[in-house]
Every structure is written in structure tokens, then in C-alpha cells.
């Protein structure tokens, strides 16, 4: 399996947009290398704005660039893309309905050794609460590249979340990315596993192990947390009658929270969440952190069995 980082998928998508859409501009707050925006910056220096370590100014400038017809993509770490500039996003992008793409790397625990100050695990919740904000968390390099290209054609604010480490690149090259469309990766009948971001691969590994143990798990990639693909979720749950959600994010405010809301309204169903349980992370190698905080296929398997037992 080819291993690639999702942030490089973003960089590749941005490079392609540089060639295909002259209205696309990019802003970065002193993390051009980390965000893989260097290629765009080199090829289109007039359309690249290095703002320095000044994220609030970057968000305001991005909003202002839309007045004049530009499609700004901002790039910095997820923490500085959301929590640090929440009020700026709320007033000048969300409430003002501006066509800005907030692109956030190094999300979650897998940022690794830099530790909890940088490991944002609350960003999906913050961003999905903003009216009109689309929230996307693709699972691998190919999907992040496709999502980056797709959001340029969507008119409205988008939060695109991706990560730092190299992870399996398993979805098709040059895939057609549809915002808000859940993707069935495995069909199953006993339990529905809804996963997002880096946890999608873990869900697929869990599915293989569960199959060996005689349990048929359906795996669905929810790359778009908002708007949520309600129909795909409800159709799957009608069949399997129990649910596991999996994400690299706090339980409060994440994908599991969105699906629990949907199901409690439409189809009350036993549901187990694999997510951060109200704690901060810490320094360490990415996969060791995921193991310590229970965000791997092992916990998905345990949760699947528990969900099935609650039917």
C-alpha cells in the first residue's frame, strides 16, 4: 500500500487549481512548507499572499479578496485555522457568506510530537456549528486532492481538514468528489461503521477482522460531516440496526455527535463512538498516540461487538 500524507494531496490539488482556475488565490500564515503550498506560491507569486504569523489578518484578507471575485484558499494548522480565528470566521466568512476555503492541516492527534497545544480535536465541532459552513475531512491523499479541487467549484464557505502523517492512499486516483455524498466502501448487514478522515482506513481494517470472526460490517466513509448524507446513513442503519462512529476528534461536537442527533430524531439505534473522550492529547509518535487514546481498528472492533450486543 502506497503511504502518502493528506496535506500533500491538498498541495497537489491547489497546484492543479492554479493552472485551471485563475480566480483561485492562496494565503498562508508562515507554514507554506508544512501545508505543501510552495508549488502554487512559486508558479503563481501574484496570486499567493504570505501574511506572516498573523492568522486573524489572513482570515479577514481572505474575506476581502472575495469582494473582487477571487476564490481564496487559506492555509495553516487546524488549530490556527479555527480556534484562534473563530470570531473572524464567524463574522467575515460565515455570517457574511463569503466564498472562502479554510484549509487546515495537522488536525488531530496524528500531528504527533508537537503535542496538545497543536493537536486540535475540537475543530469539526466549532466549524459545523457555524451556519452555512461546509465541513469536509477526507481520508487519504487522493481524496484530499479531489476534495481540494471540488470545493473551488462550490460557492460558499468550506472548512477542509487534513493531516500531517503519511497514511495508506487507498481511494481511486482522480476520483470524482461530491460534497455531502457518503461513500460505501464495504457492504455489510450486522453493523454500520461510519468513519471520517484517518479513521476510515482503521474502519476497513476492523471490517476485515470482524469478517474473520463472522461479523458482517458495513463501512461508510463520511468525508463530509456537514451537510451530512442523512439518506445514506439512514438506509444503512435500517439494514444493520446498530452503529459505530469513528473519528480523530472529540466525542463532543464531532461526526458521532452529528449521527447521534440524526438517529435520535429519525431512527433511534444503539450507537458506539470511537473518539477522544474529553481529554487533550500529548507528545508522541502518531500511531502510538492513536493507540494510547483508543482511536484504532481495535477499538472499532470492540465497539462493533458492543453495538451489536445492544440491538
Amino acid at each position: 500500500m502506497e503511504m502518502k500524507d493528506t496535506r500533500s494531496g491538498f498541495g497537489a490539488g491547489l497546484t492543479e487549481l492554479g493552472q485551471t482556475n485563475e480566480n483561485v488565490v492562496a494565503l498562508c500564515a508562515d507554514l507554506t512548507g508544512s501545508l505543501k503550498m510552495g508549488d502554487f506560491a512559486t508558479k503563481h507569486p501574484d496570486r499567493f499572499f504570505q501574511v506572516g504569523i498573523a492568522e486573524a489578518n489572513m482570515i479577514g484578507m481572505a474575506a476581502g479578496l472575495t469582494v473582487g471575485g477571487k476564490i481564496p484558499f487559506t492555509g495553516t494548522f487546524a488549530n490556527f485555522s479555527t480556534a484562534r480565528v473563530y470570531d473572524q470566521i464567524r463574522q467575515t466568512i460565515s455570517y457574511s457568506e463569503k466564498n472562502v476555503k479554510i484549509c487546515a492541516s495537522h488536525a488531530g492527534l496524528t500531528l504527533g510530537e508537537d503535542g496538545a497545544t497543536h493537536q486540535t480535536l475540537e475543530d469539526i465541532g466549532m466549524m459545523k456549528m457555524l451556519p452555512g459552513m461546509v465541513v469536509i475531512n477526507p481520508c487519504d491523499y487522493n481524496q484530499t486532492k479531489a476534495a481540494t479541487i471540488a470545493i473551488a467549484d462550490y460557492v460558499g464557505p468550506v472548512y477542509l481538514r487534513f493531516g500531517r502523517p503519511k497514511v495508506p492512499n487507498f481511494t481511486p486516483k482522480n476520483q470524482d468528489f461530491k460534497i455531502g455524498k457518503a461513500l460505501h466502501l464495504e457492504e455489510g448487514t450486522d453493523v454500520s461503521i461510519f468513519a471520517t478522515g484517518h479513521l476510515v482506513w482503521q474502519a476497513l481494517e476492523a471490517q476485515i477482522e470482524l469478517k474473520k470472526q463472522g461479523i458482517s460490517a458495513e463501512v461508510i466513509n463520511i468525508h463530509t460531516i456537514k451537510p451530512l448524507d442523512n439518506n445514506a446513513i439512514l438506509e444503512s442503519v435500517k439494514k444493520t440496526k446498530c452503529v459505530v462512529t469513528a473519528e480523530e476528534h472529540q466525542m463532543n461536537g464531532g461526526l458521532g455527535d452529528s449521527i447521534a442527533q440524526l438517529l435520535s430524531r429519525e431512527l433511534p439505534t444503539p450507537l458506539e463512538m470511537v473518539a477522544m473522550n474529553d481529554s487533550f492529547g500529548e507528545s508522541g509518535p502518531p500511531m502510538k498516540l492513536m493507540e494510547k487514546y483508543g482511536l484504532t481498528s481495535k477499538e472499532i472492533i470492540q465497539s462493533a461487538k458492543k453495538a451489536i450486543s445492544r440491538k
Binding site: A56, N57, G60, A63, G64
Partner: peptide
């Protein structure tokens, strides 16, 4: 002011 600078650049 940030917003205005974005529009200036546009």
C-alpha cells in the same frame, strides 16, 4: 482593515 486589504489585493 484586514478585509479592506484583501479587497485592495483583489
Amino acid at each position: 482593515l484586514s478585509v479592506a486589504l484583501g479587497t485592495c489585493q483583489a
